[in-house]
Amino acid sequence: MIDPDATGCDHFAVHALDPSIAGQLAEDLPRPDFLRIIRTFHDDLTRLTAELAAAVRQGDARGFQRAAHSLAGAAGAVGALRLEAAARRGMLGAEAPSPALAAQIGAEAQAALVALADLIA
């Protein structure tokens, strides 16, 4: 379950990918369309996690929030709930970007991609 503030997401209780969202997409769409979405998602994660890391290095809180916002949006689209929750925490931080949070977001991004790969396998 996800709490409304996305602060207490239980890593062990929530799968990296919500099957009701990702599965629904896979069901609703022709496979080429679904694959295109996954590829776009992969590109987004690659680009946005790099932006997060750069924001951490430069202490750019605004850049960190912006990248986290985009990550949350991308994650939400495919049902990557844990990634979305972590990214939303990154959107809220008003102070210096957190390297720990950036690392957690990166790990969740990896987990989501693995889960998606399983889904399309």
Partner: peptide
């Protein structure tokens, strides 16, 4: 503005 959302 989010490419994945737009693609979906």
């Amino acid at each position: 503005d989010t490419p994945t959302q737009a693609e979906v």
